[in-house]
Design a protein around this nucleic acid. Sequence first.
RNA 1: GCCCCCAUCGUUCAGUGGCCUAGGACACUGCCCUUUCACGGCAGGAACACGGGUUCGAAUCCCGUUGGGGGUGCCA
Length: 479
Amino acid sequence: MPDSDIRLRFSPAPTGYLHVGGARSALFNWMYARHTGGTMVLRVEDTDADRSRPELIDAIHDSLGWLGIDWDEEYRQSDRFDQYRAAAASFLDQGLAYRCDCSQDDVKARNDARADGVTGYDGHCRDRNVQPGEGVVVRFRTPDEGVTGWDDLIRGRVEFENAVLEDFVIVRSSGVPLFHVANAYDDLDMNITHVVRGEDLVNTTPRVLLMRAALIAGGHVPAVGGEPVAQPIYAHLPLIVNEQRKKLSKRRDDVAVGDYRAKGFLPEAMRNYLLTLGWGPKDGEEIRPIEEFVEVFELSDINKAPAFFDVKKLEHFNSEYIRALPLDEFIALATPHLGDIDTELFARLAEPVQGRVKRIEEAPNFLQWIVGDAPEPEAKDWKKVMGKDKVSEVLDLVIARLADCDWNPETLEALVFGVGEELETKTQLPVRLALTGSRAGIPLFEPMAEMDRAVVIGRLTAARAKLDAAPNDADGPTS
RNA sequence: GCCCCCAUCGUUCAGUGGCCUAGGACACUGCCCUUUCACGGCAGGAACACGGGUUCGAAUCCCGUUGGGGGUGCCA
């Protein structure tokens, strides 16, 4: 049971997978619902039969669930068409709406003929008393004067002149109501007290407010809680933008929550990062348990300016969360990504990997060289490491001693470092590069001991041969 | 075109008239730790878009300019 009468809703349209913008809207709604002990409603806005895909509802549930965002009630607008039609009918009865048989071409042609540059619907059918029929829509008649506005929790007072609001369509010619009628009706009927959504919806707000007033005037009583309030409290979230500062688009940007999940981001990291886009705790501690954020979260503290979705910073959050994982959990999460790497082998070497990955998916990259061929070293790495003095001697000596030494990490480390002491040089880097193909990586000797002696010697010998092929050539083999 | 909105380091959050010679985080650079990398530590560069007001005092309030974004569908 909720501790307060506060009710919020997240209203996705199932026309695509849940993307990061939607996820953040859902998150902010959820944060405030949990902060206030209110009710979180999930309302699927599937009024557009052509674009809605029912199977995507499951995908949205999945993504939300993955992020740990839960809800207390769920509705589908497609179950409620009759109620929206009744609402539209009441507008018609009240003289607040009328039927219109103008085609879109008609409207456009009339606008083109005008000199004043006005582009919206011109009210042509307002008094024509059009009867129901083919190609007939219902339009809401907007007032000719006055203003419609609200006090936005994030943006302050926002007002629109009613005169600039065109008579908009509320019922399609197919008889199916449009989203904003559904929106106005449901927010009232479900007694939503706080509407938290993206800034791209600001301009539909006056329409919704006008219809809400008409609904209340028509005597509609909310199904929940009884008393209708004149207006819910609105909070329009700043958009999440791409590097071009444009609203994130499913087309050009990589934004589906499911994609981030697949790439090895942890839900806690994703949620935590999303929360810092447009909002931040006063004390600056931005990575911490969600409960602590819930406690201090306030809608009115949200920023007005759009925020760029920075994958680099997300990765930082993610590596923090990965490092905080119990080792066995990390192993369990990484195992599906292993490919041809043996799970037992991985389990033995998982700890140093855990400390280095930014995304779970990267785990095998740190071990691939053990089971497969070592990648060709980068030319500049080769030059930097193999161009040094004494490298040939180091490799020769290591190769020779590897032939019949004990085969365990301690012995191998002592052997390689021992050569270094004898020759008064550092030996790890050339051995590492020859073995792994890279200058960077997990500590060397544990994984080295996991390999076959012959393979190790083979790789070192090959590197040594490469040195011979380009003697005293600091530019290395690729020059 | 019309309507609405936004503007602090490269990015993000803090800052709500004096505590700001503007702080934290990410990214970047250098040093330390370490015979690799990463982690960690230290240091560094880096911003109040511009112009006018208001005020004893402005990143914070007002106006304008510039720049950016959103909307302008029988999509949501």
